[in-house]
Design a protein around this nucleic acid. Structure first.
Lengths: 206, 206
DNA sequence: ACGTTAAGTTAACGCTGTTTAGTTAACGTT
DNA sequence: AACGTTAACTAAACAGCGTTAACTTAACGT
């Protein structure tokens, strides 16, 4: 009685130590730059100890991603309070871009790297706008659609949502992948984000 | 006399064999899915033989990319003949999206993967619209700018070009990274490309 | 006191990209 | 014609990777 719980707490304690060390390393070195051996060394455990708590390297990383993407969904909760659906879309775009720029390594693995099938981790609840940022976007598009804000030939909420997402994602992902590329004389990131969201919405709305 | 040349020809012959085998493998398996040993086995050479002709795996892959991206620039040459700069931008976007969808592995490494500094390979000539697709885009934006086609507050060709690029890149890169993700009920790729280019231009032009 | 459970370890496997040292065959030169 | 050089190519190995199998160890419930 209570012992099982203490054991559970102890286990999740070293689990958390792994997560903390891994987060720091992933942030500093990126996905490929982090090795299981490095994570283990950081917490002074053997590399195999990690496999007691996580199936593999990807599962470890995805747990960190899920945590951070829940944070993104929380930011969206505040934005959900904005009455005007068009302004809601704009603010959501800006928040999304901020998020991507401040979690580049998570963003890379979540949205810039092809994964073999397995639709996300099953830990995030699909369709629930509190956990699923795409569901939030789609819901807001539907609101704007109902309010008759989009140009008359636009009727497919899914198509509109995917286009809005792609627009902001384009700015975010180019920033992450090509920020240091001298080939292009990059303009300020936030300027690019604002021009993208503003222009795209102007082109889609009435 | 002539012997040196024949030697050179022989060397470049096995060099080409490596390139041919590598192209096929990279297309089929993606960058990480290809190993130097597999390439070597395909041409019945030892793995180390590749290092006589290429510095490392990345150099081998980038040579293939450069070849293919020169092809993209050639497609743009035809588009350059279109008189109306706005229509030219539209057609360029569609051609770029076609290209990305048919060379996903090259596209991934070129535009979706962060690289340590080293601005591209030095093999492509920066600023020359015949080899540099971004230079072509910027030149067309400048044309449209001169023709007074953009909304009056838009004056920075670089910023406009980067936003147009980001828009199409967003659609292309999401398609490559998340095509098989059941989380999203994806609409047809070409529909998404057209809505992106069309809406973005509508939002940027007068 | 005893059998069970599970966190954690050591050693190893099979793989990767790459390097070192060496072979071999054709070359230009004497 | 013999010799030293050059360079394509190879065999073996290195250091690293993610991961697995077999084992130890310590605390648990009975």
């Amino acid at each position: 009685m209570g012992v099982r719980e203490r054991r559970g707490r102890e286990k999740s304690a070293t689990r958390d130590k792994i997560l903390d060390a891994a987060r720091e390393l992933f942030l500093a070195c990126g996905y490929e730059g982090v090795t299981m051996r490095k994570v283990a060394q950081a917490i002074e455990y053997s590399p195999t100890a990690i496999y007691v708590h996580f199936a593999d390297k990807e599962a470890l990383f995805r747990e960190l991603c899920v945590t951070d993407f829940r944070k993104l969904a929380h930011v969206f909760r505040e934005i959900a309070a904005i009455a005007d659906p068009a302004e809601r879309l704009l603010k959501a775009g800006l928040a999304y871009a901020d998020f991507g720029a401040s979690h580049p390594n998570h963003y890379r693995v979540m949205f810039m790297t092809p994964h073999p099938a397995r639709g996300h981790s099953a830990d995030l609840e699909k369709g629930n706008p509190e956990e699923d940022a795409y569901a939030f976007l789609k819901a807001t598009v539907k609101d704007a659609l109902r309010a008759g804000r989009f140009r008359p030939e636009l009727k497919d909420a899914e198509l509109i949502a995917q286009t809005l997402w792609a627009g902001v994602h384009g700015v975010v992902s180019l920033e992450i992948a090509k920020r240091d590329d001298a080939w292009v004389d990059w303009r300020d990131y936030r300027k690019r984000v604002r021009l993208m969201t503003g222009s795209l919405l102007r082109g889609l709305l009435k």
